[in-house]
Design a protein around this nucleic acid. Sequence first.
RNA 1: GCGCCUAUAGCUCAGUGGAUAGAGCAGUAGCCUUCGAAGCUAUGUGUCGGAGGUUCGAGUCCUCCUAGGCGCGCCA
Length: 555
Amino acid sequence: MDFRETLLSLVEKVVKENFSVQVSISLQKPPKKEFGDFSTNIAMQIASLRKEEPQEVGREIIHKLKQRIREDEQIKDKVKEIKLAPPGFINFFLHQDSLLDVLEEIKREGKDYGSSKAKKGKKINIEFVSANPTGPLTIAHGRQAAFGDALANILKEQGYEVFREYYVNDEGTQIDLLGESVRACYLHLLGEKASFSEEGYKGDYIKAIAQQIFAQEGKSKKEEDKDFFARFALDSILQEIKDDLKRFGVNFDLYFSQRSLTREKIEKAIETLDKKGYILRKEGAIFFKSKEFGDDKDRVLVRSDGRITYFGWDIAYHQDKYSRGFAKLINLWGPDHHGYLKRLKGAIEALGYPKETLSIIIVQLVSLYRGKDKIPISTRAGKFITLRQVIEEIGKDATRFFFLSRRSDSHLDFDLQLAKKKSLENPVYYIQYAYARICNILEFAKKEYKQINISSISLKDKESSLLNKKEEIELIKKLSEFPSILSLCAQKLEVHPLTTYLYELSSLLHSFYNQHRVVTENREITYARLLLVYCTKLVIEKGLGVLGISAPTRM
RNA sequence: GCGCCUAUAGCUCAGUGGAUAGAGCAGUAGCCUUCGAAGCUAUGUGUCGGAGGUUCGAGUCCUCCUAGGCGCGCCA
């Protein structure tokens, strides 16, 4: 239990004993350092409920708190002062020695610093990207890939057993269309006339696949129907997708084939719903009563001609996920699927799973620009910039960082010209530079001080004045926030707080570096500062690792 | 028509119902014989889209309105 929690439970105890009110108690990080290290608004909350003066209530709480603290060995030495600030905040000031404890903790825990065991053993499934295997990945898929992967890493840090899954829609009309398109292209290569459906896929990659078939098989596939071409194209495209994702640093535990869902699984799902009275049969089709779950209308699961709709497949797919023992499912979708949210959530509930076990995150679109020109994203027209092209042009780290610095539900304008031009001023390099800088200092220190083993440096029982410069204190405080940043991300299912945090941490490191030398004549100070930058290195390394961004020792 | 997302500094964006709303970029002026200047320091900038409401307290929650994006199929 860290100190923050210890203090929080003490405040809870005091409030419980002295005020018979129901309030939620929390400790915040004050916006300014004049307000101390922690603060709580509890006095104002209580005063509001009891129609009393906030400052009066505050004084009373502080009085009781001080009494308790004097009796508590564990925190007696850490809390320096408790002050009341208008309009009624209670601010806690800590002794600086406790700051050195933070460094000791980071050093001791190393790569585990910031990890939590809170969700240990809980299985969580995160399904993302799941792009139709009818064309190359676009930049929008890239955003989902970066976000889903980083979020998965964050959840893993909270103790979850995380499973990454990609749902391959290798069944349905879009696959038929793909087959027809490739077949037409192939026949065209043979000099035959073939009608090209208006709805068909037209990109250069379609031609490339047709050429590949021609190169391998010659004219022998002339009589094959669309299914053969669909199969061939599917395998080829899916392989490209997997390669792209791998290159982007995203590895899935499972590529789940829609086709692998058996008829029995779908019938079982429908049967489950039927037993609970959520199935409606009319006009030869089978409907799910999604209206009962807030949807606009009931939705078809099986068409009157017997074919299963996407929704029908999807229900069976989600039931399958649950049957594999996941306590929680997370789906990342594009905004074009938001209308689909109510019916799927309804179906999950109808199947008998608690609705809060399914979280759906809508990752907003990315608009691609080159300067002021918007580049259209249309898979069927075949004119678009692929994720692969962007990674090659901008680089993996910068591309990932860009996607991860913004809220998932915000629209994103990605200007290739700007991203490329500013690539050296890109915040990701700022963080990586801080990291490389620390590595350099550590190298330098090894030369200056012959035998040095940073992990053996201990500041226990040392004077806190060793690290009492403004830049040092701020850096240590920032380091101490790392665990709560990770848990905040996990709780909000967002990644960008971590990105922002790493930037701020790097900024403090740079400030410190420019103001103070680490390696000096004074051995004690040198060791203390070495430990400080070493701890910073650990946190940056871990943070970047979670984001899936590399931490180079040199740049 | 209905639904979802967005609106914060010149630009790109942070901001967990709390204290004087913050960063970067762009601008200006400084800082390298000393651990990497891809860096640091200083400097100013706001009708938080608009109007109501809830609250001790609203950029944050609720209602309505405006603007932009997206979606509303027995397509996926």
